[in-house]
């Protein structure tokens, strides 16, 4: 008996140790990326970085105002398209009975979530960019919306399913029409969780560069409309980082810092929204 006890104790300790070690190992790359970005990016940050446009090659200084605004614009348009569609699709999946169509949509969403983002970019390139005969913020936004769609759909569905059916019955029992019970009770109760899912999807889309490379492309200055090629932070990071100029490298780091901060803010906002009140 006693021996078994010590064996158990040993196994327990060993497993705890292994868990701790793995956690630390997982955190190391994350922390070092953050540290690197902060240390090297802080150097290139200045007021002009946020307000100015790029200077011609060789001239020092200049900023990325157009890329910051461009990123927000592309992601904003993507949200306007992806969030309503995703949420409505999620409601449909959660509310409708188990139909063949529902299963098909759910399966497609799961497959779509696994499609590499560059493939989505290619898809939008063929369908939108070639038709419109030019790169545009709109095309970039469509690519990002397609990327966000499956995540938002599935998050909405899963969180709606978590809301107890008894709340719907409560609403229906008060003589509330079904659609209003869904929107005002079920969706409202699941809202914090759904908002978190949306934020995470948006944060992910915000950091994507691959699908933007051949949809919204890039621009050295301001785009005058969403139908024109538009600069974005991820694409600019890429372009600046692969350039041969040292001060461009610095700007790439600064852009990376801004992007990471934006994404982090979205993530923190998502966590804050859901703080201890999952349905």
């Amino acid at each position: 008996m006693k021996d078994r006890f010590f064996v158990r104790l040993f196994v327990d300790r060993a497993l705890r140790g292994a868990c701790l070690l793995s956690t630390v190992l997982a955190l190391v790359p994350l922390a070092s990326v953050l540290w690197f970005v902060v240390v090297r990016g802080a150097h290139g940050l200045s007021l002009t970085f946020f307000t100015g446009l790029p200077k011609p090659v060789g001239e020092p200084g200049g900023g990325m105002a157009h890329a910051i605004v461009g990123s927000l614009e592309i992601v904003g348009i993507a949200c306007a398209m992806g969030i309503p569609a995703g949420v409505l699709a999620g409601i449909h999946l959660a509310e409708s009975e188990d139909t063949r169509f529902g299963r098909f949509v759910r399966f497609s969403a799961d497959v779509m979530a696994g499609v590499p983002s560059i493939a989505v970019g290619l898809f939008v390139y063929v369908l939108v960019v070639r038709r419109m005969q030019g790169f545009s913020a709109l095309a970039g936004a469509i690519a990002l919306a397609v990327l966000m769609l499956p995540t938002i759909t599935r998050a909405t569905e899963e969180l709606l399913r978590l809301v107890p059916e008894s709340l719907r019955e409560a609403a229906l029992g008060l003589g509330v029409p079904k659609w209003r019970a869904t929107l005002r009770v079920m969706l409202r109760t699941a809202a914090p969780g759904i908002a978190t899912g949306i934020m995470l999807a948006v944060a992910r889309a915000m950091g994507e560069s691959a699908p933007l490379l051949f949809t919204s492309f890039n621009n050295r200055g301001w785009a005058s409309s969403p139908a024109e090629p538009t600069a974005s932070l991820p694409v600019n990071i890429y372009t600046y980082a692969v350039s041969p100029y040292a001060d461009w490298h610095e700007q790439a780091w600064a852009a990376a810092l801004v992007l990471v901060t934006l994404v982090l803010c979205l993530n923190i906002a998502a966590r804050w929204l859901v703080r201890g009140r999952l349905p």
Partner: peptide
């Protein structure tokens, strides 16, 4: 209803 079901929000 049998189980209390106030709206949590």
């Amino acid at each position: 209803f049998q189980k209390p079901n106030p709206f949590p929000t």
